[in-house]
Design a protein around this nucleic acid. Sequence first.
DNA 1: CTGTTAGCGCATTCAA
DNA 2: TTGAATGCGCTAACAG
Lengths: 360, 360
Amino acid sequence: MKDSDDIPSAGRRPTLADVAHEAQVSVPLVSLVMRGAPGASPANREKVLRVARELGYVPDSRARALRRGRSHLLGVMFDVQQPFQADVLESIYSSAELAGYDVVLSGITETRTEERAVSTLLADRCEALLLLAPKASRDRLAEIAARLPVVVVTRGVRHADISVVRTAEARGTRLAVDHLVSLGHSRIAHIDGGPAPATEQRRRGYRAAMVRYGLDPQVVHGGDAERDGTLATEGLISQAIPPTAILAFNDRCATGVLDALHRAGCRVPEEFSVVGFDDMHLAGFSHIALTTVRQDAPLLGRMAVERAIDRIEGRLIGAGPDVVVPPALVSRATSGPLLENPEVPPVAKRSRRHLARPVG
Amino acid sequence: MKDSDDIPSAGRRPTLADVAHEAQVSVPLVSLVMRGAPGASPANREKVLRVARELGYVPDSRARALRRGRSHLLGVMFDVQQPFQADVLESIYSSAELAGYDVVLSGITETRTEERAVSTLLADRCEALLLLAPKASRDRLAEIAARLPVVVVTRGVRHADISVVRTAEARGTRLAVDHLVSLGHSRIAHIDGGPAPATEQRRRGYRAAMVRYGLDPQVVHGGDAERDGTLATEGLISQAIPPTAILAFNDRCATGVLDALHRAGCRVPEEFSVVGFDDMHLAGFSHIALTTVRQDAPLLGRMAVERAIDRIEGRLIGAGPDVVVPPALVSRATSGPLLENPEVPPVAKRSRRHLARPVG
DNA sequence: CTGTTAGCGCATTCAA
DNA sequence: TTGAATGCGCTAACAG
């Protein structure tokens, strides 16, 4: 047990008043010092800081925000299981800090819906919302945007109140098709994102590119997770004439594609070329080595924060024009030239491989 | 044409007072209704709810917490780039919700330190902190734990004030060694976690198991990210007598190991067996198919929340005994029997493969 | 059942 | 330079 009367380690948390009392100055003076405002004598300033540290004083962000009428908070909704969004988060955190804003995260999980994530953000009095790949309807997003500035990242939404920061999705899938065509492929299938955002734009880019090359587009239903890619691929390879290349909605979907191909004993890229979208952190490692369309996560995050703050601070009225970030094709080991060998036995009849790796 | 004071969509957010005014009742009555407390007539209750919805009223969680003296908040520090922690987060979210607590996330990134993550959590007046794999010193953790209940997840810390929820790490690495020995391996190297938490325990389990089998342990310095595994592996395979099996600190580290082996043209598992730790979501897909030691993320998350709330609500005084969750070995395709073929040419002299390099 | 009073911790007027 | 009052939005006591 301690002999001194201060440091209520187990008791109530120290407040400005406690610090003021201990330092024998007034409460407002402590307030000045704690937020680094001018107007305190050096002697007092130092004493206050010392006492504050001794007591373990931490300002109450809530009380502060309440009083100031501003929270300086950017609310970010993200999907806990999307690795690419983690990359965007990194950039959001650092951009926000640079601009003097705090970030509060609200994650989507299997059991936690977008609605719930957004409502906690609203209850926290965020000054703007950054929504990463939201799946909510345009109308629902508009409702939210009527209350506070909303920046939708990684999805195109046309609405006067909603700022958009996104990749040139259609251009991305076009790059992928260009790449595959240049390798000699013509039967290129696309597994779309199903209900996921950006699905439409990526599909459109794919379709347009295929048509421009005089090829038949084949779009099958997919989604943004591995199992979507797996299911779709199982269908594709059991077709009478399977594709020779598969453009997946995103990297996680592509992972499912590779999984299915591998289990079916198909070699990549000799028999099937696979291209993803995002360039998630893990895609680049050479035993995975996924060819993919890179989204510029740092830039997306930075621009989203910039848009949000411009609107909060009134430098921008309304949503402003979409910020469109160019994608880039990253060619790795899951795509390769089409081999001139139509005499492979049908996939279904071949023996399955077990425990080998597909690359190389 | 409405009067001036309706629905201030672009203006100030509606407060209890606005709702009260519009519904022609008193402020406390609205408060009662909004939090579902008994003591309001059905007629008034319905009117208040209707008006609240019309105005788009959302309670201010800050003001509420300030007044009630409690935040009902669990602060969670996590690493944005560790996929395994995302799995734990899922469980934390759902367990906390079940118990009536809110969760506030604070992420670690390249530029955002643990200190910063913790201090925002403290400023938010969280009632307990869940720290996922913190790297802070034991003393620093103790300082924090002197202020509020702290649950350290996925790392062993011996301190009277710090609750610990962790996997039986040593048993995990022992399982891995057992597995590799049963496959015929004797030169089994361990790449440790460097400064990462749990490094010691995993190393200890590895060492003990090796010694028990009468084998020579070889521990090399590593870390919890891919490049740590890559660097360490480049060293290992250039040894005069390289190991035949590598036990990596975690799955991300193992990813780096596979990357390095692949670029050096080494076959897995024919020449090298590789075992990870965590069983992150991606590890199970068959083209990756990482043999690994699984940590039970759902259970870890659930127990961490339980411990935290038990302490908040006074059902548990002090840290309580460690919660130790058993690991399990998951055998996949990166481990295999030792081949009786000492006549492979040294790694360094073989031709390297030329695939795309990892991003970096 | 309802309204009145008071104050959580803090920052922002003022006046001294 | 410092200190005394005021109120942010809300809820817990009461009183009516």
